[in-house]
Design a protein around this nucleic acid. Structure first.
Lengths: 206, 206
DNA sequence: GTTTGTGAAACGATTCACAGCT
DNA sequence: AGCTGTGAATCGTTTCACAAAC
């Protein structure tokens, strides 16, 4: 199907979370206007976002809450579970593994790797930390869908190469490095310094 | 000055980090093409980004590395230090405080707050965790520039309100909540579930 | 009467291409 | 000759506005 904008996908995820709120409140129908209000956007935006995937509403009435939620889960690929490996068991890596909302719902952390002998063999959230030297061997036997890189910048590219070689198809990168991956591997970067610098820019208001 | 796109600011931050690399390598001049190559963009993009703020290059030659770095620091507001308060001393909050690249360079964590009596009074990276009930009092006496919200979703809005009331002008929100803040307060959201769901979408390739 | 779904219009960002300096 | 700075062209996203469905 035709390419869907990044921004659209983010909004769809938000709509799903709003629908799940509405669902627990027992609301059974929402209008695009109601969803828009909840997400600080416009009803036209909501309708356009959904229209890329089909017609899920009833004119004059709105959308069935559980039905639309189900559709969005299907669209977002959240009708299955994903196997994640985390590389880097430092402070941030450990926090992510233990963070609810990360290793829950549709995403399972199946393995954690580090290169620090002091960490290898310890457990994090019930998962034993393995030697990163065994990453290739491990993923060769039990493939994963998503790799999460939480190493320093320096080894990040070689970790990414390793992940790509072992058929990981999506990478979430927390290392402050510009990773190079094949075009068929999805890559998302979370760069904390960049977020702060963007805030500094608006504070400075050049 | 006229509004600068989000994406432009992000690239400027990246250019700065590349320039600092070039600087340590002793390179004294770069072309827009060289910067573009390093950042996986185009030379026209680099020049357009910079052109919003002035003309910093020499035709036929390129840009002076230290000079352009200095300009970018000034543009991004990185010619001063920023005082940050972190609200939430859970796993993620603690990891952020101790994360290099977060509390370094131009950003200082000056205080950490939590509502858990077991955490209050303990120190994190040399900073004593304070009772969030004293946040208003604290910020009234010693204002901060940036508030970092690392609480669960539920209390996030009331924490944001408190920060806004005490003249914090920028908020970095890690809680999975749609915060409402006045238009003159800068808000950036980092939502880990959303990042994973965006990856799931590309894996599913609806 | 209400609200969806969608072409058309408006807006914004990126890329092109070249005149103007060095 | 080489590279910047920038108007013009292109491309993509958001908003508008209304016909169609209920």
């Amino acid at each position: 199907m035709r390419r869907i904008a990044e921004s659209t996908v983010r909004r769809l995820s938000l709509y799903l979370s709003f629908l799940e709120e509405f669902e627990t409140q027992g609301t059974d129908t929402v209008s695009s206007e109601a969803l828009a209000l909840r997400g600080r956007t416009t009803s036209a935006q909501v309708r356009k976002d959904l229209s890329h995937f089909g017609s899920f509403g009833k004119r004059g009435l709105g959308y069935g809450v559980p039905q639309l939620a189900e559709r969005l889960r299907s669209i977002l690929g959240l009708d299955r579970r994903y196997r994640m490996v985390v590389i880097g068991a430092g402070k941030l890596g450990s926090a992510l593994v233990q963070h609810r909302g990360f290793s829950e719902r549709w995403f399972d952390v199946v393995a954690i790797f580090d290169n620090d002998p002091a960490k290898i063999g310890r457990a994090l959230d019930g998962i034993t930390i393995l030697d990163v030297g065994r990453l290739e061997e491990y993923l060769g036997q039990t493939p994963a869908d998503i790799g999460v890189i939480v190493t320093p910048a320096d080894p990040a590219q070689s970790v990414a190469d390793l992940l790509v070689a072992t058929k990981v198809r999506a990478i979430l990168n927390f290392a402050p490095a510009q990773l190079s991956v094949p075009h068929d591997v999805a890559l998302r970067n979370v760069n904390l310094s960049l977020e702060l610098e963007a805030l500094a820019f608006t504070l400075a208001d050049y």
